[in-house]
Structure formats: structure tokens, C-alpha cells
Design a protein around this nucleic acid. Sequence first.
DNA 1: TATATATCGTTAAAAAAATAACAATAATTC
DNA 2: GAATTATTGTTATTTTTTTAACGATATATA
Lengths: 209, 209
Amino acid sequence: MQKSSRVSEAVIRRLPKYYRYLKDMQKSGVERISSKELSKKMGLTASQIRQDFNCFGGFGQQGYGYHVSELCDEIRKILGLDKEYNVIIAGAGNLGQALANYVGFEKEGFNIRAMFDVNPRLVGLSIRGVQILDIDSMGDYIVNNEIQVGIVCVPKAKAQEVTDEMVKRGIKSIWNFAPVDVEIPENVAVENVHLSDTLYTLSYKMNED
Amino acid sequence: MQKSSRVSEAVIRRLPKYYRYLKDMQKSGVERISSKELSKKMGLTASQIRQDFNCFGGFGQQGYGYHVSELCDEIRKILGLDKEYNVIIAGAGNLGQALANYVGFEKEGFNIRAMFDVNPRLVGLSIRGVQILDIDSMGDYIVNNEIQVGIVCVPKAKAQEVTDEMVKRGIKSIWNFAPVDVEIPENVAVENVHLSDTLYTLSYKMNED
DNA sequence: TATATATCGTTAAAAAAATAACAATAATTC
DNA sequence: GAATTATTGTTATTTTTTTAACGATATATA
Ligand SMILES: NC(=O)c1ccc[n+]([C@@H]2O[C@H](COP(=O)([O-])OP(=O)(O)OC[C@H]3O[C@@H](n4cnc5c(N)ncnc54)[C@H](O)[C@@H]3O)[C@@H](O)[C@H]2O)c1
Ligand SMILES: NC(=O)c1ccc[n+]([C@@H]2O[C@H](COP(=O)([O-])OP(=O)(O)OC[C@H]3O[C@@H](n4cnc5c(N)ncnc54)[C@H](O)[C@@H]3O)[C@@H](O)[C@H]2O)c1
């Protein structure tokens, strides 16, 4: 993996999509694929695919194409999915619980260790073996359990506050679902998901022309 | 609103973000804003903001800036959020229930009329007054209740099948949460959300350099 | 009312991204 | 083992997107 700092955001955003398709192909026993075939499946150009992969060194063979499982492994590594992460969820409401119940994240190394909430009715319960703890204990928990990833599922008004506490205690990345762009210092990564945005885009498309 | 077909995807994807910020400002009583001020808040350039708005005609006044609530209303209209929609959810599991419980969608006109599932334990239950019906009745329900929007929350393997049924019965847009790009005919709109993708991007960022 | 100031809408320039072209090279065929 | 074919990695071109520049115009001020 080469100097990643100058790989464009556009390329990075496509990596998970490549990973998704390659994993599927690998699962169904496909051993090799050319950029041309892949371009048809994914709705991209072959040129773009080759150029994307070459940002990271190029994993193909001329005259042959790409080994699916090899390429898949490389992209997994590039995305950092070859590692294990300790994760917590702040906000054990509808969305927090849905995420906690989803097994897909653990399959890629994101292990949810605990959830946190203010609601005393929720504190003490467990979701798939993951305990819901009092939000006041979150800070210490992060430090004592080497949590790297924080998922924010609290109401909008509390999202920044909860994020700040996570960052203060050393969390390295924030996956935020509250409909606000939370602010973080430079050395912390953040993804503000904004589910509604995609619904509104859909609405636009549905109404256009 | 002018010929929308040639407004670039990049601009369209920014519209919900503008809407989010403008709604917040409107709520907190801000009456006017210049492209410069807005650019600071949103982390964009003033130039881009002005050019984006001008794709739809330009809603500002020289020497003054933009009326927040006027601009907000315009963007709401552009996004089609001034209308009401009938919505159904296929798959009343973790995510389907979380979405059904969220009030934010109805506030923008997306009214969830029913949910559908194969699981007999779920059929008959209600979420916030929304009934879970048998998936076999979905087709007729769509036709009889003028459903425009279908939310797909079934497992990956069933997503295309469910989508096909929705489309066949006349649904005009698909909001898909299964980790697969569902195929639709040209006259139907689709947003494949891919929640995990953003987690993987986050993972990449967290590990870079 | 005239002048100065602010800020838009629009056109121009720069930067980034996507696509196309092609030489290099591995695999396959004869 | 030479010739042919397939397909990459890479460089060049085109297109799209972003940013900058600036004239036009409304507001505010004197
Ligand atoms: N559910 C959805 O489909 C959906 C869709 C789009 C966006 N969102 C956003 O995701 C976030 C969570 O949504 P939800 O539907 O799960 O809401 P929810 O109300 O069901 O859950 C929020 C939870 O956060 C807890 N909470 C409140 N303040 C807290 C604090 N300071 N610290 C810790 N916990 C606190 C509440 O007790 C509650 O359990 C919200 O910001 C919402 O806007 C949700
Ligand atoms: N929960 C999450 O956090 C999360 C995250 C990323 C992606 N997803 C995706 O969203 C989808 C739903 O996830 P979930 O966690 O709610 O899963 P889930 O298993 O909790 O719910 C799926 C529901 O679909 C129903 N179902 C199965 N086949 C059906 C069919 N043919 N017709 C109608 N209903 C059917 C099941 O009975 C179940 O109730 C999945 O594709 C999942 O991969 C979920």
C-alpha cells in the first residue's frame, strides 16, 4: 500500500463498493476477473477500475486480469478490515439497537463491546449480549477497554456533546447518525451518515423532469 | 425551477445538506445569510454555493444575500419535500422497525402506511400505529393505496425479488438498505444506501498515513 | 439624492476526475 | 517455440467540477 494521503476522496469512496462486489464473487467461486467484466457488473468503466487499483500499486496481471480473492484481500487490507476494532454505541434507541443487532459489522472486525444511554429503563438491558450501560460511565469505559470506534445514535441536540466526550477519552473515529455534522479534531476520523439525505435525493430524482 | 435534467449529480447530492443547514438557521431565527457566511458554516466555498443555487435560478439579492426562509422553501420544493408521499417498508426486522419508529420522515411528507414481512410472528403487530402485513399482500396494497415509495429492509438475498414486485406494482422509487445494488427500470428512482460502506470508509481514514 | 459598500449572478480559469489510447507483457494457441 | 490474443499499467485527452474574478445591482450611508 503506497502513500495513501494523496489518494482522492472519490477513489476512497469507491473502495467499499469494489470490496462488496469482490466478496460476492469470491463467495460464488469466481476465480478471475478482468477490468472489462468487472466494469459491466459494477456499472463503471474498465479504465476507471484499472486506474483506481493502480493508486495502491496494481494487483493484476497483463493478459490475465485479476485474481478475485487476491484482489479482495488487498482491498480488505487497504480499508483496514484485516484488523479488529473495539466499538461502542452511544444511544440505545431505535437505531442504536438495530445496529447492535446487525452481525455484519462483527464479521469485518468491528466488535461492539457496550452501549450507553441516559434512559434508566434501558440501562442494564442487553442486546445480543451487549450490555447497555449508563452514559456517565462511557468515558472511563473507553479508556479501560481501548475503544477505537464510537457510534453516535443519540438525538441531534446531544450528538456533539457525546462526540466530544468520546474524542476527549481517546476514540479515533466517529460514526455519526445524528442529522448534524459533528466537529472533531484533525487526528480523529468522522463519517456523518445523514440517512435522510439519501431519502431527499431519492425524492428529487422521483420528481425530476 | 429550471430544466433539472442537466443539474449535475454533485449538486443534487449537496441539496439535502443545504436544506439541513437552512432549516436549522430558520429554526433559530436567522433571517438573512450571505454565501460567504454560509460557506463558513458549511465548509464549502461561497462561489460553489452561489453557483449551486444558480442551477435553479438564483434566489438571492445583490448587496443583501439570501432570505433564509425563502431559500429554505425553494430548496424544499426542489427536493420535492413540499408534497406528501405514501410509503411502505418491506422487512420489519431491526432496521425496518427503526425506520418505522423514526418521526423525521413523516415531518417531511413521507408517510409510512404499512410494513410487510414473511415472519408470521411479526405479521399482525404494529409499530407506532403502522401495521405489519404479510408480504404476499404487498403487491395489491401498493396498487390500492397509491404507494409511491418503497423501503427495502429485507436480507440481501431477497432484496431484488422484493424490489421487482414493488416496481411491477407501480412504485416510483426504491430506498434500499440491503447491501446490494438493486436493479430498476429507467423510469424508477433508486437509492442504494449501503450503510457498511461508510463504516469502511471510516476505517480507511482511521488507518491512513 | 448621490456615494460607498456589500454581495449576487455569471463568466473565466484552474483543478480534479473520468475516459480513452496505447505500449508492455503475460497467457494462450498453433 | 513462435505467433496471436488478452489485458494490464500508464500516459494522454477529455470532461466535469471547483474556484476565482468581476461587472451588475441592491442596500445602506452620508
Ligand atoms: N431511527 C432512524 O431511522 C433514524 C433515521 C435518521 C436519523 N436518525 C438519527 O439517529 C439518532 C438516533 O435515532 P433513534 O431513532 O435511535 O432515536 P431514539 O430516540 O430511538 O434513540 C435515542 C436514544 O438516545 C438516548 N439518549 C438521549 N440523550 C442521550 C445522551 N446524552 N447520552 C446517551 N444517550 C442519550 C435516548 O435515551 C434514546 O434511547 C437521532 O439523532 C436521529 O435523528 C435516526
Ligand atoms: N441492521 C443494520 O444495522 C443493518 C446495517 C447494514 C445493512 N443492513 C441491511 O438491511 C437489511 C435489513 O437488516 P435487518 O438488520 O433489519 O435484518 P433483520 O433480519 O432484522 O430483518 C429482516 C426482516 O426481513 C424479513 N424478510 C425476510 N425475507 C423476506 C421477504 N422475502 N419478504 C419480506 N420480508 C422478509 C425477515 O423476516 C426479517 O424480519 C439487510 O439486508 C441488512 O443486510 C442492516
